[in-house]
Write a protein that binds this DNA or RNA. Structure first.
Lengths: 190, 190
DNA sequence: CGGTCTCTTGACGGAGTTCAAAGCTAGTGG
DNA sequence: CCACTAGCTTTGAACTCCGTCAAGAGACCG
């Protein structure tokens, strides 16, 4: 069932029934097990992933060998490495399921074909990408202007339900501080 | 003269002569004086800016009252606040000319009209936005994984000519450390 | 249950900040 | 075209936020 994606698209562009048929005939869903990877560092990213259920994350392994989360994605979010996707270069990132998830995968060749048959979707993907870029800029702003403790409280206020969903060490790395420090913030020892 | 923009577009989509006419009739260039702002915090961002000459930057003023640069843009780059642009909300950012610059400004209403007359351009702007988002993700990666000194050398290696062009305190804030610390790195005192 | 993840706590250390003051540089007006 | 001033850069000392390490306590899954 592709309702979630169709609904997401229809908030931005209106599709004809025939276009919905074309689109649906090109899509497929898959279930990703917890901790399973859909992209690894060094691989070229050849797909876009739309999350219909669960939670995914994009992470790197830093020089100390620790995983560091750059981005989370939940229901109704797209996740991918656009730089690897567009330039056919090895990705710097891993993309992994944080919990058991369901995603709609669109491979590059399929997407190119869909975009030619339904040019309207160019608009949809343009707006998604522009908003994602805007969100990334805000993320950089928060990383720049807030202390570790402020980032934690800010994120907690904005996404209280989400904090329950992911292991604390992943959230700590996303907010760019150590798991130990997060523990101290939560205990009010700062 | 819109050659730079047309050339930039034609690297991604091919325009008919008639489409070029339409596009050109909708564009206008303007000169931005050094230090002049095209967007201020609190204002709704209603335009995209394509830089044909010079250098612009997007910055914020942090809680200590210091300017912090989030992004630079030079010739053939787009600069704007997409979040403010799409959601009609007050911007968190300033956009300013670092040096005397020339930009092609496209206002939102104009762009919407152009995109309806030349749907091909949706594709152009999609790809631009996706690549920008990818670049922002890489930026976050570098901020996460490198020390201040490594960020400086990395940037210096990648954009040696650019370092000459902007004041050091702007570059220091872009790389997320203090101007004093940058001075020490350059002097080799670290 | 047993072992492997995950979270907590405290001691110590270091990368980078802040503050203050002096030295430079470049733009501007006379 | 020079002099003056505001803005930019450098330096050093003191400080601080947060990381690292190590060890123990939970918690969750097979």
């Amino acid at each position: 069932m592709y309702k979630a994606l169709l609904h997401h698209i229809e908030k931005i562009v209106t599709l004809e029934p025939s276009e919905i048929d074309i689109l649906e005939s090109c899509l497929s869903t898959s279930t990703i097990k917890k901790k399973e990877l859909v992209l690894q560092e060094g691989q070229v990213c050849n797909s876009l992933y739309f999350i219909t259920k669960g939670c995914m994350r994009q992470y790197i392994i830093n020089t100390k060998g620790t995983e560091q989360t750059l981005q989370f994605g939940i229901e109704n979010w797209w996740i991918t490495d656009y730089l690897s996707y567009h330039n056919h270069i090895p990705s710097h990132f891993y993309i992994q399921a944080v919990e058991k998830s369901e995603v709609i995968t669109i491979e590059k060749a399929t997407l190119e074909a869909i975009l030619i048959r339904i040019p309207k979707l160019e608009r949809y993907f343009r707006i998604i990408a522009q908003k994602s870029f805007g969100a990334a800029q805000m993320r950089i702003k928060f990383l720049f202007t807030m202390s570790a403790e402020e980032r934690y409280h800010h994120f907690n206020d904005l996404h209280p339900e989400f904090v329950q969903r992911v292991p604390q060490y992943m959230l700590a790395s996303y907010l760019d501080f150590s798991a130990e420090f997060m523990s101290k913030i939560r205990a009010g020892k700062i």
